[in-house]
Design a protein around this nucleic acid. Structure first.
Lengths: 216, 216
DNA sequence: CGATGTGAAAATTTTCACAGCT
DNA sequence: AGCTGTGAAAATTTTCACATCG
């Protein structure tokens, strides 16, 4: 409470991962002109329990008013600040295939305050093309581009058999935050934050539940 | 051990979520012609600790040989079976925008044994077009298509403001496994398994770590 | 009074360390 | 001898329940 930054540093990762959901719910409430809310309402919108929402928010400080609830706009701004809202972080996308294409055109990135600063690919067939208003550049120039444009997050959208080498190059370029869509486990040194999204795995997890269901 | 199905039913969700990673690592080993492996090697490939891998696999039964290790092909088939490998589950994709397009063309789905059985959209501009060898159909026909083609998993790739209504229709059509790419929390009745992937949230989580890093 | 913020309890997940097989 | 399989311990996460304060 005395030092919010210290507390935020100790926020459990499980809580951190729910913040974006809360931020979105708060944005929706604000857009609807709702002024005040409660942990019950907000938790409902986010699909969690009220106590969990309160505990999660408590790591960011004392953001509500006892006996009253939360001010929607104020809370939105505070959660947004925790998520680096006003930072205008620059993102580079490596791999401009089907998925890279879709990501480059995804309005959600800009809507959440990110700037797509570069599109990179290894294939001569793609380099030079204009996608989402950006000219695709050669991945060989990764290091220089990251440095020159202040890229802080890189999205890896290349085939699995290229992902580790691209990942290594990204780390070597000094990037500390990586989001990978490659369907394989990537090795990163300590201090680098890697998150992975794999559509195939998600479907397989659903398939597991489907199979268990059938067995009964 | 006496009743593997019962055990599988009790597998912790945290363990279930790691099975696809193990399966992929095993597939890679098999492709390289490796015959036997150990929990240490496999855990390394999957990015987890050996004890965790052994505990995870133990929920499926006693799959290795003490003092020796695991047979790669055998273990791959057993983990694959747990994930419904041979089931040839049918998937329908609702929303054929940028993302839906990319998903329809994603070779990883077929590679992991899924069949894309239908592409659906609400927009007249898209319905009737051929994407990835399939004609896009009107989402109004969802219920009939799901029933007629035995669709067991639906992927929701529509804009956030349409996601809940589509989700409700999908549930009403009898689907029990849903993967959503919508950037919002969806409400589903108990018994329906919903998984959510939100690229914006993933980036915001990375942004949180980036901000904490800068503060130090 | 009423909803937040939070210690404490419960549940889940991870890690340890070694018994048990081959 | 060596690696798996697994109870037990440790760590993390969730939930409870209530003191707290506007």
């Amino acid at each position: 409470m005395e030092r919010p930054e210290e507390l935020a540093r100790e926020m459990p990762s499980a809580s951190i991962e729910r913040l974006p959901t809360y931020l979105r719910a708060l944005g929706d409430l604000a857009a609807r002109g709702v002024v005040g809310t409660s942990s019950t309402e907000l938790a409902d919108l986010a699909g969690v329990r009220p106590a969990q929402l309160r505990k999660d928010l408590s790591y960011l400080g004392s953001l509500g008013t006892r006996g009253v609830g939360y001010d929607v706009v104020r809370l939105r701004d505070q959660v947004g600040a925790a998520l680096g809202d006003a930072q205008e972080l620059r993102v580079a996308i490596v791999g401009v295939g089907n998925l890279g294409h879709a990501l480059a055109n995804y309005s959600g990135l800009v809507a959440r305050g990110f700037t797509v600063a570069a599109l990179l690919d290894a294939s001569a067939a793609v380099v030079g093309q204009t996608v989402a208003g950006l000219v695709v550049e050669d991945v060989a120039g990764l290091h220089g581009i990251v440095q020159a444009r202040g890229v802080s997050i890189v999205v890896i959208a290349v085939p699995g058999d290229r992902a580790q080498e691209v990942c290594d190059a990204v780390v070597a370029a000094g990037v500390r935050e990586i989001l990978s869509f490659a369907p394989c486990a990537l090795q990163v040194p300590p201090g680098v934050e890697l998150r992975s999204v794999d559509v195939g795995s998600e479907l397989q997890i659903l398939a597991f539940h489907s199979r268990v269901r059938q067995e009964r």
